[in-house]
């Protein structure tokens, strides 16, 4: 999985001096910069005004932002809203968008960044199938909420009776969840890699009993386990990007990332001591984001359950499920 070095340079330089954003507040200036570089609509086809890139490039971008503790609606704008518009054959532009699946009553809970969106792309089911519309936020009711990290997770209510939608294929609803879920797994692994770096730095610089914490074997093992879980989660998410999103591969990525989060967050705070629990220290911008993302697009339990179902219905062919030929 290699990406164009020019693009990689661009992603590195655009985030270069950015620290974690105070959460809940969209950094509009940064968003506009990203937009002018073509990074906010990375995977949208070029004929629709996007950059025509793939999940491979999107993965690098999502991880780079997450690694710096930057909360940005990159996945929502491009991989969900932009994708839905493309699938529906609707036009798109540079307006910041989010996306959601509406219940039959026209509501969606915990929609990321709804308050900041210039348009909200909605997907919903009717008696005749699934519809997509590019909604004007003025036409919907937005109730503000936040996730654990302070990122906007707003409730949205639309008047479906008054909304005209474009029909789309019914598999898009499932694909929507898979795409959102993989995006979160990628963000989680990007943040976990930063957590690992913070832990290594802290353990090698903080001194107790006259020596760096890193000299204590229990501390080494806490961090070794962070490294192990992070690399497992990363391998699973990378595999989705490389081999394509399937219900199984995304579930694997989300299960691994979700369980990794448990160890990574717990151990990282243990290594950092009281300092890591403060508002001043940047650790929480990563750990809380990781937990917040884990709760999006399906709980950890739901992903484990999906895999459990796949296993028990494999008819004794579990290995063929894990290693198809």
């Amino acid at each position: 999985m290699t990406i164009d070095p020019v693009l990689l340079d661009l992603m590195t330089s655009v985030f270069a001096d950015r620290g974690p954003t105070p959460h809940g507040v969209l950094d509009r200036a940064l968003w506009d910069t990203l937009s002018s570089c073509g990074l906010t609509r990375l995977t949208t086809p070029e004929h629709s005004g996007g950059s025509g890139a793939t999940w491979t490039e999107a993965a690098v971008l999502l991880r780079a932002a997450a690694a710096r503790g930057l909360a940005l609606p990159l996945a929502e704008n491009d991989l969900l809203a932009g994708w839905l518009l493309t699938e529906a054959g609707l036009p798109s532009d540079d307006i910041l968008r989010t996306a959601c699946v509406l219940e039959p009553a026209g509501t969606a809970r915990g929609v990321p960044w709804a308050r900041d969106a210039g348009r909200i792309v909605a997907l919903w089911q009717t008696g005749d199938g699934w519809l997509v519309a590019d909604l004007d936020p003025a036409s919907v009711h937005v109730t503000r909420g936040t996730n654990l990290a302070g990122e906007p997770r707003d409730d949205v209510a639309a008047d479906l009776a008054a909304t005209r939608g474009v029909p789309v294929a019914c598999h898009l609803a499932e694909e929507f969840v898979l795409r959102g879920a993989l995006a979160r797994a990628l963000q989680m692994t990007g943040a976990m890699e930063s957590v690992l770096r913070l832990c290594v730095t802290h353990a090698t610089t903080r001194t107790q009993f006259g020596r760096p914490l890193a000299r204590f074997q229990p501390v080494q093992h806490l961090i070794a386990d962070i490294a192990a879980e992070t690399s497992l989660a990363r391998a699973a998410a990378d595999a989705c990007v490389r081999e394509g999103l399937t219900p199984l591969s995304v579930a694997v990525a989300r299960s691994c990332a979700g369980h990794a989060a448990t160890t990574v967050v717990r151990n990282a705070h243990q290594v950092h001591g009281a300092m890591g629990t403060t508002a001043e220290h940047s650790l929480h911008t990563l750990t809380l984001a990781i937990l917040g993302w884990r709760a999006d697009y399906g709980s950890l339990h739901e992903w484990d359950e999906r895999l459990t179902t796949a296993a028990v219905t494999a008819g004794g062919e579990l290995w063929a499920l894990i290693a198809p030929v």
Binding site: S231, L232, A233, A235, A236, D238, A239, L248, S249, A251, V252, A253, S255, C256, H259, H301, W303, D304, E305, R306, L307, T308, T309, A310, A311, V312, L318, L321, I322, A323
Partner: peptide, 19 residues
């Protein structure tokens, strides 16, 4: 009885194969 650890372990196996 069904146990969600079944799914969890399968995920880890699949990811370990990649590693």
């Amino acid at each position: 009885p069904r146990h969600p650890d079944l799914g969890r372990h399968i995920a880890r196996l699949a990811a370990l194969r990649h590693l």
